[in-house]
Amino acid sequence: MDDVVVEPLDLVRRVDEALAVQALAFGLTDDEIAVRRQIVLRHCKLPGVRAFGATTQEGRLVGFVYGMPNDRAHWWSTVVEPYLRRTGNDHWLDSSFVIVELHVLPAYQGKGIGRRLITVITDTADEPRTILSALDLESSARRFYRSLGYQDLAHPVHFPSAPTPYTVMGAPLPLPRPRGI
């Protein structure tokens, strides 16, 4: 969409707007939003964290992504490591850039905004690969990640307090671009 600009996002300042996007895109409750707010703000203090937002000309945030260089000591890595080890893929935790969150409002999905967000942020990475977790369902999100070169590395992955299992996916960088981009 030509009327949506993708640029660096001050995630601390716009955390509530970002979480409103995530709530609509991912179906979060108010309690889940409150927990995620604390997680996002804690992440923003870590070295190498970057965020990009997709905003309309009126300044409305319609999508965002944030990520960071992976650290095996981070909570996410400690949870997924045994699953990755079982599949022989735990080396993906080293020298990887983690996509922590990527969400686009439903009305703006399917318009290339998610692709712009994830490619812009991964283009800033010094690491040779990227990893993320996605719900372990055959969904438009999983097809989207596969179109970017992500492959399944481990599933099902069970996060504490998450009722639905996840899949850990990884891709070499840079991510592929459609012709003409």
Rank of each mutant, 00 (worst) to 15 (best):
R36H: 11
R37F: 13
Q38E: 15
I39E: 12
I39T: 12
V40F: 14
L41V: 04
L41K: 03
K45T: 15
K45L: 15
P47M: 06
V49Y: 06
R50C: 11
A51G: 08
F52T: 03
G53V: 12
T55S: 06
T55Q: 05
Q57G: 10
E58P: 08
E58R: 10
G59D: 04
G59R: 00
R60L: 10
R60I: 02
L61I: 05
L61V: 02
G63Q: 07
F64R: 02
V65H: 03
V65T: 05
Y66C: 06
G67S: 09
G67Y: 03
M68C: 03
P69D: 02
P69G: 11
P69E: 09
N70R: 04
D71Y: 06
D71V: 01
A73E: 10
A73I: 05
W75Q: 02
W76A: 10
W76Q: 07
T78D: 06
V79Y: 05
P82A: 12
P82W: 08
P82E: 08
Y83Q: 01
Y83T: 03
L84C: 01
L84P: 08
T87D: 10
G88Q: 10
G88P: 14
N89V: 09
N89W: 04
N89G: 13
H91C: 01
L93R: 01
D94T: 11
D94R: 14
S95M: 09
S96Q: 11
S96Y: 13
V100H: 14
V100L: 13
V100Y: 11
E101C: 03
E101W: 01
E101T: 01
H103Q: 13
H103M: 14
H103D: 15
V104K: 02
V104G: 06
V104T: 09
P106M: 13
Q109R: 15
Q109P: 14
Q109L: 09
G110E: 02
G110F: 05
K111R: 15
G112M: 06
I113V: 14
G114S: 10
G114V: 06
G114F: 04
R116T: 13
I118E: 15
I118H: 12
I118C: 15
V120D: 15
V120W: 15
I121G: 13
I121S: 05
T122G: 08
D123V: 02
D123M: 02
A125M: 15
D126K: 14
D126F: 06
E127P: 07
E127K: 08
P128G: 06
P128Q: 07
R129T: 13
T130H: 00
L132K: 04
L132W: 04
S133Q: 14
L135Y: 06
D136F: 14
E138Y: 10
S140I: 11
A141T: 14
A141V: 12
A141W: 02
A141R: 04
R142C: 00
R143F: 01
R143N: 03
Y145D: 00
Y145E: 00
Y145C: 00
R146Q: 11
S147M: 00
L148Q: 07
L148F: 06
L148W: 02
L148K: 01
Y150H: 00
Q151G: 12
D152R: 09
D152L: 12
H155T: 15
V157Q: 05
V157G: 07
